[in-house]
Write a protein that binds this DNA or RNA. Structure first.
Lengths: 340, 340
DNA sequence: TCATGTTGTGAGACCGTTCCCACATCAAAT
DNA sequence: ATTTGATGTGGGAACGGTCTCACAACATGA
């Protein structure tokens, strides 16, 4: 049963104003009235109607998380899912509820959904269409982008230092003596993949062992399947090139490529070293475990929410962009020791 | 800017009743009025306030998904995340928004959150505390359980036929000639793990090659780490037992065990065959790829939502429980051919 | 001519809260 | 005795929609 404040007031023999005062604990209330009200609330298991409250307070304590995806599921995605998890956890701590939407095409529609529900703010994950952003901006609701690709002015954007990460990857492989490295570079329309490749390439040039165009393959998507099939297609070229290492711009591609190599009985890392980027949970679980550049997804999610909350309560927000430093994680696939 | 229906009415030179009629497309409206209103709406980019609408219609078009987790993240969980994905997709199709909460301890609190937000219904994933269920039942909101463990009366419960799956696993391994099988059985307090073991054990007894108590190990949790460490601890016993196959009650445990075996240079499947249960995405990606019993998570999620929607609109719902048939997926780890 | 039906409109109650304001006590201070 | 302030209470206007109802205009048919 759903009771109203009016019903509580009736049974406690007071006015609804008094009940409201007791619930919100502001203003004066006599001990007597307070206890009676509390008792009735307990008895009826009364749960205040958050909608009505939101109507008058103009604050829902709801936020929306909008995740763009092309075809595949996304909540279960090892990367975005992790960010989502961090958002859910930190939001719950501050008494927010979270609407989650995974979108494919009709993005304006799903942003409208959240907007009509009057969310206090939005977190946008991955690259969204420009018109979605405009739609949100136009409505004047605070929002934060995480790992997006659009560089819109004045938008708070949370990203990893991907270029720096690319450099770290190159540094790791060259320091192990690798000179002839094959690169699997995910969709270059995607900011992260583009910058990771850029950083990697620059470092190699700096080392005076620049990447030849023929040492870079471009899987059509940043998936395991594409990593696998790209490696398969490039197999003849790969062998003849005598590459001693592979760098992929994300873990899924790296793991896909690794799977194919293992099926060809290539020994990793003895014959070929493999490196990924992201450090998804499964990177440590594969055999051999995957050396990678860790992107701190939990921290990105947590910060995204924290910043959004500040925007919502109109506190001063210092920087307009937030960058996270990636970290080298050495594992078996480049000769590191096994999982502890 | 957030405009109200009143503002639209003013600018269109009609009453708010007329605007409401145009928006909801019910009742009579002159073409003239209709067009004028539509034009103003377009101009101001008016978005109706779903809260106000919900107040009067007593219907939010929001549902809540409550996922229980012990310690680890859950949206990114390869099993629950997948179910969640399916729910999100099918909910969006019917214009519902979805609140997602991943809970650890204080479950009553988070169910109260959803209830106060007046969700139209709830989907509960994994085993939740009894008092949470009572709390929800008491409030009278429709709900569906997915893969839970509680057998509450009259509750719609969506589960896989785990016992049958256990039998299929045993059938597969014995048909390959394995007689001496080692079992890694996840937490027996969890319905799924319990039934999977039960089905497996029954089949083996039926084959007159019953499982010895010493051939079953119980990892403390259904995680990769526990699979790995349990295998590590049982390593000496395992070798001396001359087991030719391993069955784990879920994929994560199986993959963890497999990782350890590979590190001991055990050849899979030649020396030891390994089987899991669930068919998480990564099962196909590991090397060797993992033979498993597929639980159709997408279908479970989709059905959960569909049933909930029926409950919400008070349509007749036939059965009170819904069971999904698991399917044997043969891959490399038991001698199947490699990933296609 | 008058009942009857169709089309179109706006006023206003209501959904369940919050919060402002008016007002009533009663004690302490002038 | 009267002002002042603290304490306590309830009435009622919002918040932004939906929906019922009354009513107006006009056509139709008996």
């Amino acid at each position: 049963m759903e009771y109203t404040i009016k019903e509580i007031a009736l049974r406690a023999g007071v006015s609804k104003s008094t009940v409201s005062r007791v619930i919100s604990d502001k203003g004066y209330t006599s001990l007597e009235a307070r206890e009676k009200v509390l008792q009735v609330i307990q008895e009826l298991k009364y749960k205040p109607n958050a909608l009505a409250r939101a109507m008058v307070s103009q604050r829902t304590y709801n936020i929306g998380v909008l995740i763009y995806r092309r075809h595949h599921p996304i909540a279960s995605h090892p990367f975005y899912g992790k960010i989502l998890d961090a958002i859910l956890t930190s939001a719950a701590r501050l008494n927010y509820s979270v609407f989650v939407t995974t979108d494919h095409e009709m993005s304006v529609r799903s942003s409208d959904f959240m907007l009509e529900k009057r969310v206090d703010g939005l977190i946008l994950i991955s690259r969204l269409q420009q018109n979605v952003i405009e739609n949100i901006q136009n409505f004047g609701v605070p929002y934060i982008m995480v790992n997006g690709s659009t560089d819109v002015d004045g938008v708070i954007h949370i990203v990893g230092r991907d270029e720096e990460g690319g450099r770290k990857a190159a540094d790791h492989l060259t320091s192990l003596g690798h000179r002839n490295i094959y690169v699997l570079a995910g969709p270059q329309t995607h900011r992260s993949h583009h910058l990771r490749l850029k950083g990697f390439r620059h470092y190699m040039e700096h080392q005076e062992t620049p990447l030849a165009a023929s040492s870079i393959a471009y899987p059509g998507a940043s998936t395991f399947e594409e990593g696998y099939s790209t490696m398969q297609k490039q197999w003849d070229h790969f062998r003849s090139g005598k590459y001693s290492a592979i760098f992929a711009t994300n873990d899924m591609i790296a793991l896909g490529a690794m799977k194919f190599l293992l099926e060809q009985s290539v020994r990793i890392p003895e014959q070929v070293a493999v490196m990924g980027f992201d450090d998804i949970d499964f990177a440590a679980m594969f055999s051999p475990s995957l050396t990678t550049i860790r992107v701190n997804m939990e921290e990105m999610g947590t910060q995204a929410f924290t910043m959004l909350d500040r925007l919502i309560r109109k506190e001063q927000v210092a920087e307009s962009n937030m960058e996270f430093e990636p970290e080298l994680i050495v594992r078996q696939s480049t000769g590191g020791k096994h999982l502890g």
